[in-house]
Design a protein around this nucleic acid. Sequence first.
DNA 1: GCTTGACCTTAACATTAGTTGAGGTTTTAG
DNA 2: CTAAAACCTCAACTAATGTTAAGGTCAAGC
Lengths: 153, 153
Amino acid sequence: MAEKGVLQRYLSVGEVARRCGIAVSAVHFYERKGLISSIRTDGNQRRFHRGVLRKLAIIKVAQKTGIPLSEIGDAFEKLPPNTVPTAKDWEKLSSQWRDDLNDRIEQLTRLRDQLGQCIGCGCLSISDCPLRNPYDELAGDGPGARLLEVEEE
Amino acid sequence: MAEKGVLQRYLSVGEVARRCGIAVSAVHFYERKGLISSIRTDGNQRRFHRGVLRKLAIIKVAQKTGIPLSEIGDAFEKLPPNTVPTAKDWEKLSSQWRDDLNDRIEQLTRLRDQLGQCIGCGCLSISDCPLRNPYDELAGDGPGARLLEVEEE
DNA sequence: GCTTGACCTTAACATTAGTTGAGGTTTTAG
DNA sequence: CTAAAACCTCAACTAATGTTAAGGTCAAGC
């Protein structure tokens, strides 16, 4: 009781999970992955600094943008250790991720537009279908361009 | 030799893979998953109808939009069986997937805009940060809104 | 002081989308 | 005809992101 109240310094794993809307197992998982850390009580239970809540919030947002945990972890490692991410830190992370997100949005938008055009062509016309255009970003996994080289013979 | 040339009707797995720019193992995989099918030679080797090239092209495009293979398979099953997807079929698929894609683009765009605003607030301000606004689409996994209920005490 | 809920660890399982390897067969080119 | 390239199956492995279960401990309220 004495520690609770106005200035509860440490949180149990259950509290963290509940307040972030994630499962306890996910909190454990993120800790195993090194994204967050905790100290232990004498009884070996985890106690989390409040800052972990911000980190988890950042993790959730970053995941929504499609960023893998490994990359989130890399970003966290470049932060000053053992501190709550500051506004400045968050600014760096979020602006970088926003750029990534923008790139992904652009890619998807191009694809959507191509799909839109392609609805008319039905992927039947070699010359007209943008999805079959070898020089757009749909090609380019192999040497040369043969993504939709479907019936060139 | 006799079958090759101007009107080669069937393709080996290697030809299919090469012409689609995917690995042989991936072709096998898609067949196991029921997305494509083949007949066999007397020697038990796969032979693919040319239509498989179009299906694989569709698979690749759909995957780029973020659609899982299971869903692509579901869509294929609703197509008339044993035929090459027609322009009409492709129109249905592509317009549906384009709508999905649009939804995803919209979500990501909202998220990006929120990130943009959030760069200023640094996730420090309870009242100003849109990422902490309990009533936008970032919340809503749990009962009530507590996504980023980070330091409300 | 005991019961119950919360916590601990470790291992296994689930899912998606494939890849890799072993061991053997078929096809093709010369 | 023979050697090499391509093919076959089946099982195991990869990677990311977790969840679930088993077996045991800790903490808090009555």
